[in-house]
Design a protein around this nucleic acid. Structure first.
Lengths: 142, 142
DNA sequence: TGGTTTGTTGACCGTTTTAGTCAATAAAGG
DNA sequence: CCTTTATTGACTAAAACGGTCAACAAACCA
């Protein structure tokens, strides 16, 4: 029932980008350092984020990565979903056909409710909200 | 973000016991067959359930395992918690000291909300309710 | 043009976790 | 004492996971 490091790191990366929204590309190296993520690992993390159009990358001098949408429009649900593959606590919730007992299994119904509950929380949080929460904790100082 | 097989099997085992509440011990072998769980695996599953007093075991002829409390009093939360170790989606929610950034990390706050949401669902379901749901799906026929 | 900066990709590795098995043991019943 | 049944511990195979390395590609700059 643990979230993968991919998803945890991924949200932190996007939070970092959201904090610097509007300031142009941020270096992977800097993100790695600020968020304490191994750089080579980070390099792989961003792949899916680019592919789905959440961030864009810029190469060469003064390059880096940056958000494609304003923080207000990026919801945590899609991010976790993307990096985690699925937020369902069991396979059969997303793919009933993987278990022959799916249609009559009452425990499956519970796992489905769990998935919904998780989804509700994650759909209700945007990067913008994370930024605001962070600013409240830290004060404006980065 | 997947539930372990331990937890999935475990709830099915308890459901099976709840369905036969009041009928005396049920053979591990029968449970294994009905719920399609490998018997040797099942043998290990029950260990923690016995230890925490959710079920009791009886050896020898006409032995097996049985619930210690009525199904109404067994809540899914404690079962999953027990078999899963924890329902927190990240370590730092249960043990803030495992991450130095815990007190200032806003993503951690979100994971905490996720944990609460999962907990709320699981605390709201008892074995008795699973039994009733199952009877509704199947009719009274086992 | 060529070199430097930066992201991109794919192959690879070591560890841990997980699901599952096997076999030896212990208790209860008949 | 023999059979039935649960208990325990050692063990294994496979997958997942976190992480690294190195070769490559694009953008920029001089």
């Amino acid at each position: 029932m643990k979230l993968s490091t991919r998803a945890r790191y991924g949200t932190r990366v996007l939070l970092e980008l959201a904090l610097h929204w509007g300031e142009g590309p941020i270096l992977l190296k800097d993100i790695a350092q600020k968020q304490q993520i191994p750089l080579p690992y980070l390099q792989h993390l961003i792949g899916p984020l680019v592919k789905t159009g959440i961030i864009k990358t810029t190469r060469g001098k003064r390059g880096g990565i940056s958000l494609l949408k304003p923080p207000k429009e990026v919801v945590l649900g899609e991010v976790v979903q993307l990096l985690e593959g699925s937020i369902a606590p069991v396979k059969c919730v997303d793919n009933p056909e993987t278990c022959p007992r799916s249609d009559l299994c009452v425990t499956r119904d519970i796992w489905e409710e769990v998935k919904k509950a998780i989804g509700t929380v994650l759909e209700s949080v945007t990067l913008q909200e994370l930024v605001e929460r962070q600013r409240q904790k830290y004060g404006k100082n980065d």
